[in-house]
Simulated scan of single mutants.
Amino acid sequence: MPILKFKQTAKYHEEYTLVFSKETIKFQTQSIESEMKWDIYSALWESHDFYYLIQAPRIYTLIPKRVFKDLNEKQLFEEIAQSRVKTTKHV
């Protein structure tokens, strides 16, 4: 139910930047800046339009595929994510 969650959560209406590396994911908005280790995520789910980095049931980071500037950037993200999480799943 990504659309319902999006509409109900104010922080999702801020523009944010994610920077992925093999060690961490950096989150940055106008109001916050944080760095998270990959080990908080247990799975990567992929749908036609989104990636879901799963932390726990109903807790995930939603990444629209449209944010990647090209196929190479998208593939690099997939390689990093798949090397850092235990499970991948197409939903």
Rank of each mutant, 00 (worst) to 15 (best):
8 Q>H: 14
41 Y>R: 02
39 D>F: 15
32 I>N: 14
20 F>N: 07
51 Y>E: 00
25 I>Y: 03
45 W>H: 07
12 Y>H: 12
67 V>N: 11
56 A>Q: 10
42 S>C: 11
13 H>D: 01
37 K>G: 05
39 D>K: 15
11 K>S: 06
20 F>T: 03
45 W>I: 06
44 L>K: 07
33 E>K: 14
14 E>W: 14
69 K>S: 06
23 E>G: 00
48 H>T: 04
58 R>E: 00
58 R>H: 01
44 L>R: 06
61 T>C: 08
50 F>M: 07
58 R>M: 05
32 I>D: 09
26 K>H: 14
11 K>M: 10
53 L>T: 02
72 N>C: 09
18 L>A: 09
39 D>N: 15
25 I>R: 02
63 I>D: 04
59 I>D: 10
38 W>R: 06
25 I>W: 01
48 H>W: 13
68 F>E: 07
73 E>R: 08
64 P>Y: 10
61 T>Y: 11
56 A>T: 07
57 P>C: 11
63 I>E: 02
63 I>R: 07
25 I>G: 00
69 K>G: 05
13 H>K: 12
63 I>C: 10
70 D>A: 05
52 Y>N: 03
30 Q>I: 13
41 Y>D: 00
74 K>Q: 10
30 Q>G: 12
62 L>D: 00
21 S>C: 12
69 K>C: 08
61 T>W: 13
31 S>T: 02
25 I>T: 00
71 L>Q: 06
30 Q>D: 13
71 L>H: 09
45 W>P: 00
13 H>M: 03
36 M>V: 03
16 Y>W: 04
19 V>T: 15
67 V>W: 09
68 F>G: 06
12 Y>N: 12
35 E>V: 13
30 Q>A: 15
25 I>Q: 00
9 T>L: 13
66 R>N: 03
22 K>Q: 14
15 E>S: 05
45 W>R: 12
15 E>P: 07
48 H>E: 11
70 D>C: 07
8 Q>L: 15
66 R>T: 03
18 L>C: 09
44 L>S: 08
71 L>K: 15
71 L>N: 08
35 E>G: 03
13 H>S: 04
61 T>P: 01
19 V>F: 12
40 I>L: 10
49 D>E: 08
49 D>V: 05
44 L>M: 12
49 D>T: 10
74 K>E: 00
41 Y>H: 01
48 H>D: 05
30 Q>R: 15
72 N>S: 13
16 Y>M: 11
73 E>T: 07
67 V>H: 11
46 E>F: 03
18 L>N: 04
20 F>I: 03
73 E>K: 14
41 Y>W: 06
15 E>K: 15
74 K>H: 04
72 N>G: 08
8 Q>C: 14
46 E>G: 07
67 V>P: 01
70 D>S: 02
42 S>A: 10
58 R>L: 03
10 A>E: 09
12 Y>S: 09
10 A>P: 05
62 L>G: 00
46 E>C: 10
57 P>I: 11
63 I>V: 11
72 N>A: 10
53 L>F: 05
50 F>E: 00
59 I>H: 11
19 V>S: 15
36 M>R: 11
11 K>D: 06
58 R>K: 12
71 L>M: 05
12 Y>A: 12
17 T>H: 11
18 L>Y: 04
